[in-house]
Write a protein that binds this DNA or RNA. Structure first.
Lengths: 134, 134
DNA sequence: ATTTCAACACATATACTCATCCTGTGAGTG
DNA sequence: CACTCACAGGATGAGTATATGTGTTGAAAT
């Protein structure tokens, strides 16, 4: 449904959002999230290049969520790691399928697609923080 | 979302459902569906072992959909190739997430999950046939 | 019986995701 | 400067999904 890597990324961002302003070391994040440390720094690197996260090397260094990223929709995060979602075509490619000649799955798939799309675009990184919960 | 193999399986069954009672050679099915011939026979073999399809070797041989399989829900087909769906847990495993302490994605995910589940269980192999369309 | 056709089974190849290892590099400390 | 800390990044490996290749088996035609 969503790749392991994509879920990792959201876990990471959620954890960073829980500690605003703090610089967390990769090792700490790995321990807190349960993501393999070596792999995690790679993901954080991509998040940094994309501008969602900032990092600091050396003593006292670590990673922190950039405040500008708080409003980023999780769709953008998933895209970063899985490429454009491309849910345009019909799921099963059973045959040519459009509005006029829908395949047997068309209506059903439309619902799945739209609810997924809604989720991806309604939730932002800010919402991933634990503190958001009442 | 759904594996390539799973989509292949549905394409195959849809094609067979389009030709009831006929015995189609693997090569023909491959050509009609665009699925790699060698890979296709593997999938057809699994479908045969599961009882959805019957086969005949030798001259005049080929594959045919078993009439008993017409009512099979596509959930069963997908399970055959991808194992039990197991959409139980929360998508992103952000943290412990249940009804009382839902994660930020919980409500959204519930919708995705249920519409997917509905599709898988509402559509049967019979429905995959082109002729079903008005 | 021999030939031919097509499924069947097993082995191998390829691609991608996920994960690990190792070395380099910049930043701070004493 | 010498040293340590922690990110940066390339190379490598394990595991799985996807795809191909080769020979074997069964059934019909001749």
């Amino acid at each position: 449904m969503v790749s392991q890597t994509g879920r990792y990324a959201l876990r990471i961002l959620g954890h960073l959002a829980d500690h605003p302003g703090e610089r967390l070391r990769g090792h700490e994040i790995a321990q807190a999230t349960g993501i393999p440390a070596n792999y995690l720094t790679k993901l954080l690197n991509q998040l940094r290049k994309r501008g969602f996260v900032e990092s600091q090397k050396g003593w006292g260094g670590g990673f922190a969520l950039r405040s500008e990223a708080l409003g980023v929709r999780i769709a953008e995060v998933i895209e970063l790691f899985e490429g454009p979602a491309d849910h345009a075509g019909c799921v099963f490619e059973l045959r040519e399928c459009d509005e006029h000649k829908p395949c047997p799955l068309h209506g059903h798939w439309e619902k799945v697609r739209s609810s997924l799309h809604a989720m991806m675009n309604a939730v932002s990184i800010r919402d991933l923080a634990t503190s958001t919960r009442p």
